[in-house]
Structure formats: structure tokens, C-alpha cells
């Protein structure tokens, strides 16, 4: 895949994922505000936990996608060099 297209795919998908997660958190803030007080911390944990995991995975993805390819250099000597 051309690098420009790959970069567009990466950042477009990351932006969509983050936008989705932010909108879920905004909606969670509205609905958790209406739940009884004692349950609020645990409901917040359920909302924030997946968001934290998502951010970690996106960082790992960015590292994996932008990692330079590993070049393998075969260093077997050619026959002429062996003879000399």
C-alpha cells in the first residue's frame, strides 16, 4: 500500500475511533449523572476503563504502523573473497 494512503488510513481511523470514544464518554456523563450517587464511581469506571485500553492500543498501533522495516543483510562471503 502506498505510504500516503497508509498514513491517511491510520490517522483517519484513529480520528474516527477517538471521536467515537469521546462521544460515548459525553453520553456516559449525561446518563451517569442521573444514576444514584453510590453507583456513580463504578459506572464511571465502566465508562473510562475501555477508553484507557483504547488509547493504549492506538499508541501501540501507531508504533507498529510507523516502525521502519527491518532490513536483513546476508553477510555470507562470496567465493572469491574466501579464496583470497
Amino acid at each position: 500500500m502506498p505510504s500516503l494512503l497508509a498514513a491517511a488510513l491510520l490517522w483517519g481511523a484513529v480520528a474516527a475511533a477517538l471521536a467515537g470514544q469521546v462521544m460515548i464518554l459525553r453520553s456516559s456523563r449525561r446518563v451517569i449523572g442521573r444514576t444514584p450517587g453510590a453507583r456513580r464511581p463504578i459506572e464511571w469506571l465502566f465508562a473510562i476503563g475501555p477508553a484507557v485500553v483504547l488509547v493504549v492500543v492506538l499508541i501501540l498501533t501507531w508504533h507498529a504502523a510507523t516502525r521502519p522495516p527491518v532490513l536483513r543483510m546476508d553477510v555470507l562471503p562470496v567465493a572469491g573473497e574466501l579464496r583470497s
Binding site: L10, G12, A16, A17, A19, Q21, I24, S27, L58, T61
Partner: peptide
């Protein structure tokens, strides 16, 4: 929004 997030994740 979960579906938006899902489709984005399937591409990554």
C-alpha cells in the same frame, strides 16, 4: 458511536 468506533477499529 460504538459502531463508528467498531468500523474504525476493523480498519486499523
Amino acid at each position: 458511536w460504538y459502531t463508528v468506533l467498531l468500523v474504525a477499529l476493523t480498519v486499523l
